[in-house]
Each structure stands twice: as structure tokens, then as C-alpha cells.
């Protein structure tokens, strides 16, 4: 049974690359590129894992994560956060908000695949 990953990301080329990699690895991949509507999109999609970008138009990844953790049915959803800002403070903020894994762009493909597998425990 295919596991479902939702990519919340606004960079088209990164979406393209992630979709290619995850699909090949046997994941069912959904995408969403707007921060403001991300939470309802996640609730609708009911994914097994969310890959969440830190900087999104409309609402930041941290805000989205905080809202997710406040929702009883989504509080336990595994979240992998990706950021291109590369500042240590961001990692602290994300961990406090309840992130499961935090990765800085750019990353190696195997790295991100391992992280995804790890989080969902295939």
C-alpha cells in the first residue's frame, strides 16, 4: 500500500525534483504551494507525511506547523521541514514548534529519501 506524502513547497523546480525522487521510491505524492491554505490542504489530503518548506508565500512553515500541532487529529502527523535560510535559530524555532526532522537545503537525494522513510517507518 503506497504511503502518501504531501509536499508543501513554492519552488517549482524543487517540487519537480522531489516528486521524481519520491514517486520512484514508491510514494504517492501530492503538492501544495500556498502557505495560507496549507493547513486545510493537509487536513483534506490526510497524508502519512508532510514535507514542509520554511519560507512560503502567505504563511511561514513554522506557523503552519504550530497550527497543525494544535489540531488533535493532526498533532501526531510526521513533518519534515526543509529550509534554505540556513540559520541555527530557525532550527530551534522549528523544534519548539514540534518538527520531526529538520533539513537544510541543498541536500543529497539519498539523505532526503532516508529521512522520509525513517519518519514513516516503511
Amino acid at each position: 500500500m503506497d504511503k502518501h506524502v504531501l509536499l508543501v513547497e513554492d519552488e517549482v523546480n524543487i517540487i519537480e525534483a522531489m516528486r521524481f525522487l519520491l514517486t520512484r521510491d514508491g510514494w504517492k505524492v501530492g503538492t501544495h504551494s500556498d502557505g495560507a491554505t496549507a493547513v486545510s490542504a493537509i487536513r483534506d489530503a490526510r497524508p502519512d507525511l508532510v514535507v514542509l518548506d520554511y519560507m512560503l508565500p502567505g504563511k511561514s512553515g513554522i506557523e503552519i506547523l504550530t497550527e497543525l500541532r494544535a489540531l488533535p487529529d493532526l498533532a501526531g502527523l510526521p513533518v519534515l521541514m526543509l529550509t534554505a535560510r540556513g540559520q541555527s535559530r530557525d532550527r530551534e524555532l522549528a523544534e519548539r514548534a514540534g518538527v520531526n526532522r529538520f533539513m537544510t537545503k541543498p541536500f543529497s537525494n539519498s539523505e532526503v529519501l532516508n529521512a522520509v522513510r525513517d519518519l514513516v517507518r516503511v
Binding site: 519552488e11 529550509t83 535560510r85 537545503k105
Partner: peptide, 16 residues
């Protein structure tokens, strides 16, 4: 943070 983001984002695509 902005510069980092602007540099790392294309870099991410290129690397991937």
C-alpha cells in the same frame, strides 16, 4: 537569511 535562501534555493534544484 534572505541571501542564504536566494542562493540555496537554485542550488537545491541544481543538486537534486
Amino acid at each position: 537569511g534572505q541571501i542564504s535562501h536566494e542562493l540555496r534555493t537554485p542550488m537545491t534544484s541544481i543538486r537534486a
